[in-house]
Every structure is written in C-alpha cells, then in structure tokens.
Design a protein around this nucleic acid. Structure first.
Length: 647
RNA sequence: GCCGUUGUAGCUCAGAGGUAGAGCACUUCCUUGGUAAGGAAGAGGUCAUGGGUUCAAUUCCCAUCAACGGCUCCA
C-alpha cells in the first residue's frame, strides 16, 4: 500500500499502482467523471498513470487551469487526427494548449492552402472522432525508435523536435489513428470533448523563426458542454465591443486616413482634449518629483543617431534620412528623444551637486513599424512618448529608479489599472551581438533594476532577451480587451549612452565622472495608453478625463433659453458641459447621450426653471433628483477630487 | 515583411453578370414632450484603386492600396 495525501492534508492508503482515476472513483463517482488531470508531487500527469510511491496529489477538474490545459491539449491532438484524416500527407509541427484554447501548426504540403472556409469540415470531423471515445494511450519508447517511427511518416518537423531532445525515453501519445510526440498529460479519452470551435487560421513560422518555413496555424477552443462554448463566444463578442478602434470611432476620439499614411493617427478634438488632460496629470506629478520640461525638434542630424547606436541597429528598416539642398546633409525623423536630451545635458558643464537632472518631454517620435504590425493606436508609426531622462550619479541610481516606480504605480492606481504585470527585461546572454556596451555596465544596470524591484516589493516576471539594445528595463504590461499583452510603462537603466555621448560631471574630487541615465515613460506612449484606457473603461472614462462631463437636456424648446443659462453657469465653473437642444423627446435625448457615455445628464423643464434647479441623472445609474447648479458643480468637483486622491 | 480574411452611403450591414438597398446618423416639416428610440418627407454611393475577361463588371480574374486575425519584429 502507498500513502496518498490530499490538498486538505488528509491521507488515504491505496494499493501501489493506483491511478488518479481510481483515486477519484474512490472519492466520488461524480469526481471520477469530471477529473481531467492530476498533479502528483508537483508534476502534472495523466489521470490514468499508475502512482507507485507515497505521494501528495491534487485532482484537477475543468475549474483548474491544469484541467483546462489537459483538455485543450487533448483537443489539439484530436484536431490533428481530424486533419490527418481530411488531408492525407499533412505534416505536424507543434500543437500546444494556450490560455484560451489550443492551436496546431501544420504543413498541409506544397501547393495545398488551407482556408478559413475549410475549418467547419475539420470541426465536424473532430466531433465525429470524439464520439468514437478513443483513449489517449501513453507510450514510452527510445529516441531511436521514435526517430524511426516519424521517419516512416516522413515528418521532418517531428524528427527535428526529437533530435533536439536529450537521449533517453521519449513519450508518444496515441488516440485513434493519430500518434504524436508529446510530453502529456492528456485526458483519458476523447469523449469529454463535446463542443469545438476553430476560431482562426494564420501563418506561423516554424519554431518562431522568420527565416524558416511558414506553417499553417489553426486556433481553436473546445469545451465539455455546448452551452459553455456558446457562452464563450458571447463573451468574445462582448470583448470586441470594447475594442478601442470601435469606441474611438464612436466617441470621435481619433481616426486614421490612408491619405495621411498608415499608422499615423489623427487625434480628433475630443481625443486630443482627453490626451491633453492625461498629459497635464502627468506634468503635475512630474513637477512634484522635480522634473523639468524641455522641448526638442522632430528631426535631428543622422550623426546624432549614429552616435547613439540607433542608426546602426534600426536605420535601414526605418523612415529614410531626409536630404536637404546642401550636399551630404542628412536628417532623421527622430525615433527616440534620448539623444536630444543628452545634447541638452551637454549644454553646460555639470557638477555632482546638479544631479540628478530630470528632463521630461512629450516627445513625438516616428518609427517605420512593419506594415503587418500596425494595430489601432497600440502600434503606430508616429506617436508621442511621455518621455523623460534622468541623469544621475551612480550612487543615486537606485533611489531614482525607485521614485520612478512610485510614479508609475501612482498613475496605474489613479486610473484603476489593477491587472498589470511587471516584467524585468534582461539581455539574452546567448545572443550578445544584439547589445552594445560592456559586460560590466550590463551587470551593474541589471542588478540595479533587480535590487530596486526587490526593495519596492514588486512581484516581477523575469524575461531574458527582452532588454533594449542599450540596457535592461522594467516594463509594465497590460492586456487589452482580447487578452493581447502590451507594454505600457517602462523604466530603463543605461550606462551606454552617457559613454557614447561622453556625458560628464565634475565630482567632489574635482575629477570628471560619467553619469548614469534612466529612460522612463510611465504611460509608454500616449497613443497606446489611451487605447488601453479605452478598452479598460469601455469608453466610460473617469470624470476628470472624459471629454464631456455633462450634457444639459431641455425637455422641450420652451426651456432652451434656461438650458443655455445653465450651460453658461457650468462652463464658467470649469465644468465641461454641452447642450442637446435638438427637437427630440426627452427619452430620445437620454438614450442618445447615455450611449455617448456622458457621465451626467442634466434635465431641465418647467419644474427646474421655476426652482432655478436642474434634475441630475447619472450615467447608468438613473435619476438622482434635482439640485441647484452650484450644488452640482460642488458634486462634480468633489468626485474629481476623490478620483484624483486629493481628499 | 510573411500567411489568411475583408473592402458597397458618415456608421452598422444586405445584395446581385444587366451600372444599387435597409436601419441609424444628416436636412426640412409636423409634433412641444418628464428620465433609454414620436411621425412624415428629403438628401446622400464612380460599390477601395488600376488593369483584364464579357455585348455588358460594383459582381468573375489579376495587381495595387487599406483594414482585420495571426506569425515575425518592437529603440
């Protein structure tokens, strides 16, 4: 007998070789039907695998990510089986479970192109195969046997994967007529897969390498119940309604024009006003932290970027240099603000007493992003960074870094961004030629970031190979409505540019020293930040940011004059108010202005005019009763102060 | 940049080898109303652009441009 302990600390005895399924069965019949995977001593396994020693276990049902993972991973294999049946000769790359569903990268063979319209047939085949209730069978074989097997199938992709594995036992999983190289775990069988939706088809480079063949990636999702799939699809539709591109159009915040150019956003008046308010908000914080605003031009001599290293790294894939009538003169549309700020630093000799110097600028930069990368406001070719560069002494570095973390966290908190991750982006030690600067400087820079994060108690994810070419960074990542991850705030430590620009200060020892630079942008870019803000709020912006805080709605044309008077009073009190004096009934005006997401609707009719009041209706919250304009102004000011944490 | 999809009125979308339609928005008129859609009339489109096939193309084919879903990239 072996001892099996459970998450609730209870311990039970089972015969040696008992499986997760047996254990589930011993606990309850229902559990046995629902269990999808098992963790045995921290290792995720098939529920059918025998357990041979004392172990602590956790059984996973659909509610656990581990359960879903096994379910979707098995679904990927099921899809492969269906594809194999429908497309003889198809080769298979990799097919993992992902956060929402699964995919498989396949090679349908030369000249065979899979289209979106082919997916329905694959779905049908999957369900047909699932109903055969085949089991997933695990097989341990030697590497040589595995190679021999996939040799017979002539699947070069699997052969490559196996060749990269260490020598020893290799596991295959088989269900129905499909056998795959796989670590597992899988469901006991295909039967629980009751609902399948193949969502999209896309090209994906083999092993993520754009120099290698592009395979066909099919994304799908599956569920144990049709109803769950239906609900998921509704949820997807709902998420699409939050898309900033859609809301940006509806609320007249921004647009694009192919006449102006791809990826070059045009901010409409309301969007520009909202963005301006965000900028003012940050400027105010920066004043408190002793930043100084600077302004630099949109272009700079090419040499400036040769010096910084940007030209060597990005020059040939960028907007090309601007030539002038003068022979040999070349300017670059600036892709970065830092070189300009370095030149400001060099304007005069600096003393150690002057540091840190913090130069901030809402600097508009231009980068020729690949056309396929452009995406609404989140990835554009012309955008404004809420940039600043801190020039400090090495002994000030960590403190300065921590202060920037404070700024970013304050901004995220004020704007109610709760779901962000903090990522420490380090260089890839195996790929050193991507970076400039000395080993010593990189070690100093990376440890400064890691220590600052530790001292701030930030829970960070470390990603190697994600550093900028001149230094490591701390990135604040946020997801959009459809779960795509975007980098917003970023803080970077840089020993390299000060060297390249020969920045100096005179120390207490009367010797020349080199400052350290921190590059930082709490929003990242105004464009991307506003995009994510739109998706997070679904366009219902906080009162202090929203383009129009209230709208005055006269009940009929008889009250238009009074409404105008109210409007003037509000505007005089710095409340952003508009009037809707269209010849429409009040119900219509309420509906239209609710859809425009205006926070307060102010209804005025005979009653209000007599009492010198307004009836206040809060967006999404109905009638709040009537009050004087002065009390309403007070209410708004109070609410804004609360949102900004000023009370 | 690569793979796939899409492109019809300001917006959301129908449609078909014989040169266009709806709803909303817009304009005018009627209505003057009390908390999420009052009524009527009108105006609005080289059917993304350029070629080709055809008696005839917005519809079929090719190319280009742009948008969308991914991959790669992201200073």
């Amino acid at each position: 007998m072996i001892k099996i302990s459970f998450p609730d600390q209870s311990v039970r005895e089972y015969p040696e070789g008992v499986s997760g399924l047996d254990i589930a069965q011993s606990l309850s019949h229902q559990l046995a039907k629902e269990v999808l995977a098992i963790t045995v001593n921290n290792q995720l396994m098939d529920v059918t695998r025998p357990i041979t020693t004392d172990a602590s276990v956790k059984l996973h049902k659909w509610d656990d990510v581990e359960g879903k993972y096994a379910f979707w991973h098995s679904s990927a294999h099921l899809m492969a089986e269906a594809l194999q049946a429908l497309y003889p000769g198809m080769k298979f790359g990799i097919g993992p479970a992902i956060e929402n569903g699964f995919y498989y990268d396949v090679d349908p063979g030369d000249g065979v192109v899979m289209k979106e319209t082919d997916l329905a047939a694959v779905e049908a085949k999957m369900l047909e195969l699932a109903r055969q209730k085949n089991s997933f069978t695990r097989k341990d074989i030697s590497k040589a046997d595995a190679l021999a097997y996939f040799q017979t199938k002539n699947d070069g992709y699997k052969l490559e994967l196996i060749n990269d594995l260490e020598d020893g036992t290799i596991t295959l999983y088989e269900q129905g007529s499909f056998t795959d190289l796989c670590r597992g775990p899988h469901l006991p069988g295909t039967e629980p897969i009751k609902a399948v939706k193949l969502l999209s088809i896309a090209g994906a480079y083999w092993r993520g390498d754009e120099k290698r063949k592009q395979l066909t990636r099919i994304y799908g999702i599956s569920f144990p119940k049709q109803k769950m799939l239906d609900e998921y699809l509704v949820l997807l539709e709902e998420a699409k309604k939050r898309d900033h591109r859609k809301i940006g159009k509806e609320l007249e915040l921004f647009t694009f024009s192919s006449s102006v150019g791809q990826g070059l956003p045009l901010w409409l008046p309301k969007g520009a006003a909202l963005r301006g308010r965000l900028e003012d908000f940050l400027k105010k914080i920066q004043r408190q932290y002793d930043y100084e605003q600077v302004i630099t031009p949109h272009i700079g001599q090419k040499e400036l970027y040769v010096t910084s290293g940007h030209y060597a790294k990005y020059g040939k894939d960028s907007f090309q240099p601007i030539n002038t009538p003068a022979e040999g003169e070349e300017f670059l549309l600036k892709p970065m603000n830092c070189p300009h700020h370095c030149e400001i630093y060099k304007f005069k000799p600096r003393s150690y007493k002057d540091l840190p110097i913090r130069y901030a600028e809402f600097g508009t930069v231009y980068r020729y992003e690949q056309s396929g990368e452009l995406h609404g406001l989140t990835r554009v070719r012309g955008f404004t960074q809420d940039d600043a560069h801190i020039f400090c002494r090495p002994d000030q570095l960590k403190d300065e870094f921590k202060k920037v973390i404070d700024i970013v966290l304050y901004i995220f908190k004020t704007l109610d961004f709760a779901n962000f991750t903090t990522q420490v982006s380090l260089r890839d030690p195996l790929n050193q030629e991507k970076y400039i600067g000395s080993e010593e400087n990189w070690i100093k820079a990376e440890s400064a970031i890691i220590e600052a994060c530790e001292e701030k108690g930030l829970e960070t994810i470390v990603e190697t190979g994600e550093a900028a070419f001149y230094g490591p960074k701390l990135d604040f990542m946020v997801k959009d409505a459809l779960g795509r991850k975007w980098q917003l705030g970023t803080i970077q430590v840089d020993y390299n540019l000060p060297e390249r620009f020969e920045l100096e200060y005179v120390g207490a020892d009367n010797q020349k020293h080199r400052p350290v630079m921190i590059h930082r942008a709490p929003f990242g870019s105004m464009e991307r930040f506003v995009a994510v803000l739109i998706e997070h709020t679904a366009g219902k912006f906080p009162l202090w940011l929203t383009p129009e805080q209230c709208v005055v709605l006269p009940i009929s044309e008889k009250f238009n004059d009074y409404a105008e008077k109210v409007l003037k009073l509000l505007n005089n009190s710095d409340i952003r108010a508009v009037i809707d004096d269209r010849n429409e009934k009040i119900g219509k005006k309420i509906r239209d202005n609710e859809l425009k997401r205006i926070p307060y609707l102010l209804i005025v009719g005979e009653k209000e005019m007599e009492n010198g009041e307004i009836s206040v209706r809060k967006q999404g919250d109905g009638d709040k009763g009537s009050m004087t304009v002065n009390s309403f102004v007070e209410l708004i000011n109070q609410e804004v102060a609360t949102l900004l944490g000023e009370v």
